[in-house]
Simulated assay, not measured.
Amino acid sequence: HVLNKSAFFLVKQTEKLLSKVEQSPSKTMQAALSPVMIALIADKLLKHLDIDIKVGIAACISEITRITAPDCPYDDEKMKVVFQLIVSSFENLSDVSSRSYPKRATILETVAKVRSCLMLLDLECDQMIIEMFNYFLKTIRPHHDEVIFSSMETIMTLIFDESEDVSPDLLKPILITLKRDNEEVIPVSKNLAETVIKNSNPKLRPYLAQAIKSLGSSAKDYSEAVAAVLGENPSVTERSNENSLKD
């Protein structure tokens, strides 16, 4: 426990120092950062059992990606491990009272600001992106600061806009959130999903239609925002359906 406490303090100090390092650092600074970068990806840290320490490590690595952006600080395989840690830090964003919440929020903001989320596309980490989308849509809360919503919105919009093509699986978290009969979804989650698809319209239109089809649904099963992206007017569609039934 004492060890964890001192490790937590060290990680906290490291993150604090890294946050003061500017992007594109000098050769001297790069040399000074090198041992820190290596130390941060040691297995015993990446696989640490203490959640707060893991989030702290994710925050440090997130700062490293900011400093080295647009270049990746590690090789592809290490980046996948690193991003798994970063993405997993979004899991409990709904708990604003937890000790690690400020760090989780900072990681989210950094990923949005530096657009490091786009590295996930380069690394073809589709499952990780889906996991991240699920976390966002499940953890966003009305009491969150506006920057939490806008960071999630930015990340999701960037992913859609920069994807060469958008798989139905990638749209599934959005569609599940916007399903009319999904009573578990809170309004702010719906708002996030709707904002993102509006942002990425018209690019999403063909992919959205395809995803709905693959789920065996139709546009009328979803919120009006979906119909709007598809270029359909749900009320008109419903009226014409009613008329055809009368005929």
Rank of each mutant, 00 (worst) to 15 (best):
K213V: 00
E162S: 15
E164S: 11
I159C: 11
L108C: 13
T28I: 15
Q30K: 13
E77G: 13
S62Q: 04
E153C: 14
A39E: 04
Q127K: 13
E109Y: 12
E109C: 10
E184G: 13
I107G: 05
R115I: 10
L93N: 01
N201V: 01
R115T: 10
V87M: 13
E183P: 02
N199M: 02
Y207K: 00
R104E: 13
K80D: 09
P206H: 07
S150N: 09
D221H: 09
T237G: 00
I186P: 00
R141A: 15
M152I: 08
I174N: 01
I197G: 00
S6R: 12
L137A: 15
A219D: 05
S163A: 14
P187Q: 02
E131A: 08
I130S: 03
R239H: 07
S97E: 10
I53R: 07
V87G: 11
S98K: 05
V188M: 13
A58S: 14
I107L: 09
R141Y: 12
S89T: 09
A209V: 01
D75L: 14
S6E: 11
L171G: 01
D145G: 11
V196T: 00
S235R: 02
A31S: 14
A39S: 08
Q30E: 09
A69L: 05
T237I: 05
S200N: 04
K220M: 10
T106H: 14
K246M: 08
S94M: 08
S100M: 12
P202G: 04
Q23H: 10
V21I: 14
K198T: 02
F90D: 03
G56R: 10
M29V: 15
T154Y: 10
S26P: 15
S244T: 04
D169F: 12
E238W: 03
E131S: 02
